[in-house]
Write a protein that binds this DNA or RNA. Structure first.
Length: 959
RNA sequence: GCGGAUGUGGUGGAAUUGGUAGACACGCUAGCCUUAGGAGCUAGUGCCGUUAAGGCGUGAAGGUUCAAGUCCUUUCAUCCGCACCA
């Protein structure tokens, strides 16, 4: 009677054995090569693990197991990110302290983690809410403070009105709190609050530079680059006319300074009051009021630019021109200097503003088109005018000549009064249409550089387009009558297809879109001595010249802001600061750490912007560590992101009572070899990099980066593609799947098989049963094997075929595991199992070859399905665990194919295949191919023009 | 708006350097078997074509090539990130 596959029996059995034998306990001082794989920190909530956890932690578990089997000292750590709002909010509601609820919740997680078969080292478990941990979180604050990287400032900050706390920029998602981003949740507000910051901006440059070398999912690297948001430019000072004030603007386009026709300040800018003239005072105050009532989001999504003139003028340092100063809410106080020079010709936002308030628009960069200039031929500058002529039917007039279709127009002659006169003359000369209703310049000037055969010279042509609207089709004698060119009317849509010249296409597009704003690079015009330079040359030279005169400085700006770390909440690590009436702000001495969170009855924030800690009078009142006088503790706690920004370091030395961690141990184990998660592309990962770099600078870690490889895996979504959520109640409980009898092995293997790890997985209720079937087939086949007679294989060919398939499988699975392609690794094992079922029908016995085949399968399966693998491994006669040092070497001699399939194509289409030994000669293979019956038909009565031959692969006859 | 990614059967997804498209599963169809189960086994399954011969097929349209899912150009759709960043 064969045994049946019963996960219910074998899974708990092996979990108990592993625990009692310490199979997954890591020796941090081992001489073996180290490997550490982990997934992002878990926040323990009352509802236990969900399917997303099952996904995340299985990914790193498979990696850790694979490496452990390969002989590495592999470490798969475990811990709890236990501080945070859900536990506190629960405490406010129920009166159960967070300390107590964590003590109840975490043991439940232990059971669930073990039921999933994750190979965690429980002896090194950590939890951030325990004083032995948060003591060191507090010490990070102290270190930051001592090194001038922690400072206190009163600043406008995002404020969540549900949690009554400030938020870091990284915790605001689509204008809402990261914990309250549902459709009915309120937008975050801005509040001015005195709070603590970490100077992460001081590390902006190195955090940015190091990104390129990281072996991380590209989208995360990109998100971090965008988040840091470096932009290189200059600060330029504009003297305010008749005033001692200067306005400093930040710009990345100093080259466009001749096109600056006004300045704009953010409404909150410090100079607004001083620069407002008496006449404008009422208007300005009204505008300021109006801005104040708008929410941040309203401001950002406003379709129309609004603003108001302050009455003052500023002097452009490049040319002494006085230009008006405006305030407008499209300029943000907290980026750059909170003020801009507006160049409406080359910035979309400035353009909209200028249009609305009828401010001048001056083009200074011309789009540049390069034709085919001839070398060693003189270049002549020309001004050309072209006309987009429209008749009353809305048709457009094109000229056709040797060059193809283009608008009419020509060079400006010395006899022309101006460009307008020139275009009028050209239109009449070339087309004879003289009844012109209106004529106005449109689109921006462009520069075309190239050879003109008719004049035998290179021309640098500055082109201006005009819209010419005809009042009637009255026509006089013109050049088209001489046969020089022909005239054609087209509809709007046809024109773009007909036009032969790029510069005309661009101009017509601009004309149709009625934008005259070009923000790219080009050649300088209207810029005095900088004319004719390219815009990037001009940018450099203008900054250099203004710098010499003291009006400008090169400047790099980052979008990223300093990290706000104060939270007005109870359930977090208290900030180790004391306020003394005499000494001011005093750091709690290291010897007095940790500052323990006092036990309270009521956890609600005090409502005045302070946490519940403000009511713990006994705790609050302390004597000053410096002078011994009366003092009070800081009542804010640290952002929980600080706890999770250094936990990977504590994993290496979790029980150290003396130091935050042992430097030698951390140097040995860092960087984390493999890290994965489906969230926190910017916030957590940036913070962890920042803190690691900080310790690196202090000389406490010799690696600047914490995570060597980072995989940003997909999420598990419901079968319709939407997110699982508690509110919908459509979640999948991993334990329920296990307890239904499918077991953790089938669940784990399904999750890893369903899709590439980077993609999100749609939950398929048939998926786990499908994989269960596979495991069951493995089980059944091995039970059958164990009942066979004990003797060796006699069939030589079968012997090779089995070992060939086995080694190919191990080779592929090893490669796929290294490349994180788990889904194809599992597919390879399934295909191999199908092969074994076929081989079984030829000859089946308990000999060495079959034993090898099954052992290799079990070893490869073990990272995914650890329980069934361990059970079968022992049934195959082993007495030690499959999960250590078991990974086989591939025998390369068995990877060779005994026959290869040659594809025979005629004209690139597959018509037949041919089986030959590898390494056959070209002539023999082509000879065989020509003899193939089917191929004969295709080649009959045809000349073979060409034969393509690829050794051991393909023959293609071209006829 | 900007940036990025992805489009392959009924479904999830395979496919080194361009070289047999659809591996492996799910589902479906037919049959077998039985201690009737959430089973197991066998065969089939891209589309059109009665079988066959053949033709068509990787979001769409062009192109390069003996040969294109893969390279180039244009375009459409979906998802993600940032979003007035000067």
């Amino acid at each position: 009677m064969t045994r049946r596959y019963s996960p219910r029996d074998i899974e708990p059995k092996w979990q108990a054995v592993w625990e009692s034998e310490g199979t997954y306990t890591t020796n941090l001082n081992s001489n073996k090569p180290k490997y550490i794989a982990m997934s992002m920190f878990n926040y323990p909530s009352g509802s236990g693990i969900h399917i997303g956890h099952a996904m995340n932690y299985t990914i790193s578990d498979v990696k850790a197991r694979f490496k452990r089997q390969q002989g590495y000292e592999s470490y798969h750590p475990v811990g709890w990110d236990a501080f945070g709002l859900p536990a506190e909010n629960f405490a406010i509601k129920s009166g159960v302290s967070p300390q107590q609820s964590m003590a109840e919740i975490i043991p439940g997680y232990h059971k669930q983690y073990k039921a999933m078969g994750w190979s965690n080292d429980w002896q090194k478990e950590i939890a951030t809410h325990l004083p032995e941990y948060y003591r060191w979180t507090q010490s990070i604050f102290s270190q930051m403070y001592k090194h001038g990287l922690a400072y206190q400032a009163s600043r406008l900050q995002w404020w969540c009105s549900i949690d009554n706390t400030v938020l870091a920029n990284e915790q605001v998602i689509d204008g809402k709190c990261w914990r309250h981003d549902g459709p009915n949740d309120p937008l975050v507000e801005k509040k001015e609050i005195k709070q603590w910051f970490f100077k992460i901006t001081e590390y902006a440059e190195e955090l940015l530079e190091a990104i390129d070398d990281l072996d991380w999912t590209e989208s995360v690297k990109l998100a971090q680059k965008n988040w840091i948001g470096k932009s290189q430019g200059a600060e330029i000072d504009f003297q305010v006319a008749n005033s001692k004030h200067k306005i400093t603007v930040f710009t990345t386009r100093a080259d466009t300074i001749f096109g600056a026709t006004f300045l704009v300040l953010a409404p909150e800018h410090g100079l607004v009051k001083d620069l407002t003239t008496k006449n404008q005072k009422t208007k300005v105050n009204n505008y300021l009021k109006q801005v104040a009532t708008k929410s941040e989001l309203e401001r950002q999504t406003a379709k129309e630019k609004t603003g108001v003139f302050l009455g003052s003028y500023a002097v452009n340092p490049i040319n002494g021109e006085a230009i008006p100063v405006y305030i407008a809410d499209y300029v943000l106080l907290n980026y750059g200097s909170g003020a801009i020079m507006a160049v409406p010709a080359h910035d979309e936002r400035d353009y909209q503003f200028a249009k609305k308030y009828k401010l001048p628009i001056r083009q200074v960069v011309a789009q540049y088109f390069l034709g085919n200039p001839k070398e060693d031929i003189a270049t002549v500058n020309r001004q050309v005018v072209d006309a987009i002529v429209r008749n009353q039917k809305g048709q457009y007039l094109l000229i056709k000549d040797l060059d193809g279709y283009h608008f009419c127009g020509g060079g400006v002659e010395s006899t022309d009064l101006d460009n307008r006169a020139a275009i009028r003359r050209e239109v009449i000369e070339e087309t004879g249409y003289h009844d012109i209703k209106s004529l106005k310049p449109v689109a921006q000037q462009t520069i075309f550089y190239g050879y003109r055969a008719t004049k035998n010279r290179n021309q640098r042509t500055l082109g201006q387009f005009f819209e010419v609207i005809l009042a009637s089709d009255q026509q006089i004698d013109n050049e088209s009558n001489t046969g020089k060119h022909t005239l054609h009317w087209f509809n709007k849509d046809e024109v773009l297809n007909k036009l032969a010249w790029d510069s005309h296409v661009k101009a017509f597009e601009q004309y149709l879109n009625s934008t005259s704003c070009y923000s790219g690079e080009g050649l300088m015009i209207n810029s005095a001595e900088f004319d004719d330079l390219t815009s990037d040359q001009a940018r450099e030279q203008i900054i250099r010249q203004l710098s010499k005169q003291g009006w400008a400085r090169e400047k790099i700006n980052y979008r990223m802001k300093d990290w706000s770390v104060s939270r007005q909440r109870y359930w977090g690590a208290p900030i180790p600061i004391i306020y003394c009436q005499k000494c001011g702000t005093v750091l709690v001495p290291d010897a007095d750490l940790p500052v323990i969170i006092p036990e309270l009855e009521d956890f609600a924030p005090s409502g005045d912007g302070h946490s519940a800690l403000a009511r713990a009078k006994d705790w609050l009142k302390v004597s000053c560590p410096k002078c011994g006088g009366p003092a009070e503790r800081e009542t804010d706690t640290l952002d929980t992101y600080i706890c999770s920004s250094w936990y990977m370091l504590r994993y290496i030395d979790p029980h150290n009572q003396v130091k935050i961690f042992d430097t030698d141990l951390v140097n040995k184990w860092l960087p984390i070899d493999f890290y994965n998660g489906a969230d926190h592309a910017t916030a957590h990962l940036l913070y962890a990099r920042f803190i690691t770099r900080f310790f690196n600078k202090l000389g406490q870690i010799n690696h600047p980066e914490p995570f060597k490889q980072m995989l940003y895996n997909g999420k598990v979504t419901s079968s319709d593609g939407s997110m699982f959520s508690k509110s919908k109640g459509n979640g999948i409980d991993p334990l329920e799947i296990i307890n239904q009898g499918y077991g953790a092995d089938a669940l784990r293997t399904y999750l890893m098989f369903a899709a590439p790890l980077e993609l999100s997985v749609r939950w398929d209720p048939k998926g786990v049963p499908g994989v269960y079937r596979f495991l069951n087939r493995v089980w059944t086949l091995i039970q059958a094997y164990l009942e066979q007679d004990k003797h060796q294989l006699t069939d030589k060919k079968l012997r090779y075929d089995i070992l060939h398939a086995t080694n190919l499988m191990v080779d592929k699975v090893s490669k796929d595991l290294n490349l994180n392609q788990y889904n194809t690794a599992i597919a390879t094992m399934m295909a191999y199992l199908n092969d074994l079922y076929r081989f079984k029908d030829q000859e089946f016995n308990q000999g060495q070859v079959w034993q090898t085949a099954f052992e290799n399968l079990i070893v490869c399966l073990a990272p995914f399905a650890p329980h069934i693998s361990e059970e079968l491994w022992h049934q195959l006669g082993h007495t030690t665990s499959v999960h250590k040092d078991s990974w086989p070497e591939v025998d390369k001699s068995y990877l060779v194919d005994k026959t290869v399939t040659i594809v025979i194509q005629v004209n690139g289409k597959v018509r037949a295949t041919l089986k030959v030994k590898p390494g056959e000669t070209e002539s023999l293979v082509i000879g065989l191919a020509k003899k193939d019956n089917k191929i004969k038909e295709y080649l009959a009565k045809k000349d073979i023009k060409k034969t393509i031959y690829l050794p051991d692969k393909l023959v293609n006859f071209v006829v």
